[in-house]
Nucleic acid binder design. Sequence first.
DNA 1: ATCGAGTATAA
DNA 2: GTTGCTACTCGAT
Length: 823
Amino acid sequence: MKINFYPLDFDYQVKDGQTYVYLFGRTEQGERLCVVQAYKPYFYVQINDIDKEELTKKLSKLLIENKLEPAKVTSWEEVEKELLGKIQKLLKIYVNYPKAVPLISRELSSWGIECYEKDILFVHRYLRDQKILPMTLVQVEGELQKEGGLRVPLFIATKIEQVSHESIPKLKMLGIDIETYAKDKIIDLEKNPILMLAFYGVDEKGEEFRKVITWKRFTHKLDYLEVVSDEAELINRFKQVIIDYQPDILTGYFSDGFDLPYIKHRADKYHIELDIGLDYSSLQTGGKADFKEGEASITGILHLDVCKFIRYIFGKNLKTDSYTLDAVAEELIGHKKHVVNLDNLAHVWDDGLKELNDYCEYNLHDAHLVLQLCQKLLYDMIEFTKIVGLPTYDVIRMRFSRLVENYILKRAIEYNVLAPNKPVHEEVDQRMEETFQGAFVYEPIPGLYKDIIVFDFRSLYPSIITAHNIGPESFHCDCCKNVKEARVPTQDEYWFCNKEKKFIPTVLEQLISIRADLKKQIKEAKARKENTTILEARSWGIKTLANSFYGYLGFFGARWYCIECARSTTAYARNYILTTISKAEEVGFKVIYSDTDSLFVLLGEQGMEKALKFQKEINSHLPGQMELELESYYPRGIFVAAKGASDKGAKKRYALISKEGKLKITGFEMVRRNSSLIAKEVQEQVLRMVLEDKTKEAFDYAQKMIVELKAGKISLDKLIIKTQITKELKEYSSIAPHVAIAWQMIKKGERIAPGSVVQYVICKGSGLVRDRAKLPTEVKDYDAEYYLNNQVLPAISSIFAVLGYSEEELTKRSSQIGLGKFF
DNA sequence: ATCGAGTATAA
DNA sequence: GTTGCTACTCGAT
C-alpha cells in the first residue's frame, strides 16, 4: 500500500529492541496519520591506526548497565569519510537504542578511541539520512495497522521517499493564551491560578474557532465564553478542546516559557494528566515558568512558540526593538494594542466585576494575534525547515549558528563528510581568547556633499569565501604552499587550496547561486502578477543562512570553527575595498566614505556613464560570485565631525537624501533607541531641511524647538528615554539612570529581567541624573536643561557645525525669548 | 581631564 | 554568528 503524506511532527520510541521513528502528519487527502519506520542508531569511531579485529572483539562483548536495558553494540561496518579534508578509516557502530550512543561512545573514548557524530539527535539523523524534508510530500510504502494505540491511524512503513518539494498547502492551527492571577504583579505559579484561557483557531477551510474558558460567574454576553466551576475544570477543558479540535499546529507567544509550563504546573497540582499527545503522552515542558529558556512539546502536535522564532531569527527584519506581542503584532499585522490594565485583573476578579468582560475580550484578542502572527510567519518557518531539513519545531528554536551548522550537517551526507566534534569546555575557553581584525572604515571629512554615488559589494563576505575557497578543509592544503595566488593578502602565513573547491565554500556557493536564481524567478513572477510570498520567504531564508557562514566560522562553539578562515575573509574584504578605493581615485573620482563593503564617491563633473564604466571595470577583475553594484545616486549627503575633533569625520554617522526625497539616516541619535523622541524628531527635521538645501529654515526650526523645550511645552511621551537592562541588577557596578529606574520598578513589584527595556524621564531637581530619573507616570516637571544639553543639542549641533553655525547661535534667541516669556 | 562601564548601532 | 583601531553618555576619580 502506498500513501502520499506530509510529515509535520516527529518522535521516536524503542520497542522490543527496535527503534522506531514516528512521523505525525496528514495524508495528501487531509487525513491525520502517524507513519512509523524502524531505524538504527549509530555513530563513528576512527580506526586509522587501530587493530580492527581486536576492537570489534571488545565491542561485541561490551555491555553497559542502564536503568531499563543495558546498552550494547549490535553491529558495525567499515567506512571511509572525509574529516576536515582528510580521508579517515572509520567504524560505523550501531547500537541497540538511541540513548546507548552517548553511553557506548563515552566508554570508547575512555579507551582512547576518537568518536564522531555521537551527539547527533536520532530523529535528525533519520531525516537527513532518509533525505526527508518535513512539511513536504513524501510517499510511504507499507501497511495500515488496525490497532495502533494512538489517537490517529498508524501506518508501518517499509519505504519512504520524497516525492515533491512543495510544502503542505493547508494547516489547522490553534493559538492559545492564558491570563493568570497576579496581585502586585507577582507571578507565582504555585499560589496563583489560571483565571482564563483563550483559543483562536482556524481550520483548513479557513473557518474560525473562538473560545475563552474562565471559572468566575459574571454577567456577560460573550458567545465564545465558557464558564466552568473551577480552575481544575478549566484545565480539563483545555485538554479536551485540544483533543477535540485536532490542530496540526498549536501556537503561542512565549508559550515555551510561560503559558504551557504554567498550565502544566497547575495541572500537576490537581493531578490532572495532560495526555494530549497523539500517542497519549503528556505535554512536556522543560524549565519552569520563570522566564528562563525552556521548551514545551506535545507529541504529534507541532508546537510553535512564535516569540522564539522572532527573537532568534526574524527580529532582525523588524524595526521594533521590543519583542512584546503588542509591538511585534503592530508591525507585522498592523494591529493596535487592546487597552486593558492587566494589573487590575486580580482585583476585578476578586470582586467579580463586569469588567471581566474586557479581560476575556483581551484574552481572546491575544490568542487571535498569536494565531495571525503564526500564519504570517509560517511561510518563513516552513522555508527554513526545508532548507535546513529538520523539524519546524527545532528550526524555529535555533539561533543562526545552529541553523548554519545543521544545514552543513545535511549537506555533509552528500559529500561523504564526517562532522567534526563540538569543542569541549577547555577548547571553548581557548577559542574565546582568539580575536581577529574586522572591516575597514574610511574616515570621512565632515561636510555637506552633492551628487554622491554609492557602490557596494553584493554579499561581500559570502562571495569572498566562495571565490577564494575559504574553509577549514582548504586551509593550508599540501598542494598550494608555493602557489602565489592562494596566499591571503596581509596574512602572509595563510593560504587556501587553489586546485580543488572544498566542502564549505562549495555548499555556500550553491546557496548563493540558488538565491540568485530565486531572485530571477521572483522578478518574473512579479511581472506576471503572481504571488511571490513563498519565493520571497525562501530567498530571505537562504540569504540569512549564507550571511551567517562568516560569523559561524569565527564562532567558538562551531564544529567547523576556523578562525583563520574568518580572519582571511575580513583580510580579503579589506584588500578589495582598499583596492577599489584606489582605483576609483585613479580614474578621477573623489572618494568620501567607505565602510566594509561600500564605497561613496562624488560624481563631480563626470557623468553617470563614467560611474558605470568604473563599475564594469572593477567587476571585470573580480573572481567568482563577487560583484560590485551601483547601489544608488544621492543628490545630497552630510557627514558630521567626530566629537571634539572638528576636522575628523565621525565614522558610521551620516545622512543621505534620495532623488525621491527619501532620507537614509545612519548611526545618528535618530535611529537609536536610547535617545528621546524629541531629540530624534528635531534631528530628523533638521537633517531633512539641510539635505533639502533649506539651511535657514533648519536653523529657525531648531531655534523654535529649543524655545519650546525650555518653556516646558514638550509633551511627556517625547521625553521618554528607553534603555535595556542587560544583566541582573545586582551585577551592575555603576548605577546609571536606567539601573536606578529598574530598582524603582522592582520596588513597585514589576519584573525586571535581563532583556527588559525600561523607560524614564529626567526631571528637575538637584543631584545626580540617576536621582532625577522618574517613571513616565510620576513626572511633574521635566528638566529642560538636561534635555537641551544632553539630548537635543548633541543631536543637532554636529549637523549645524558642518554648516558653520555654533551652539551659541542656536541657543541665543531661545535664552532671550525664553527668559522673556518666563519672567 | 580622563577612564571604565554600559548601551547601542553598522556592516 | 562576527568585529568595529565605532561613538556616545554617565559616574567615578
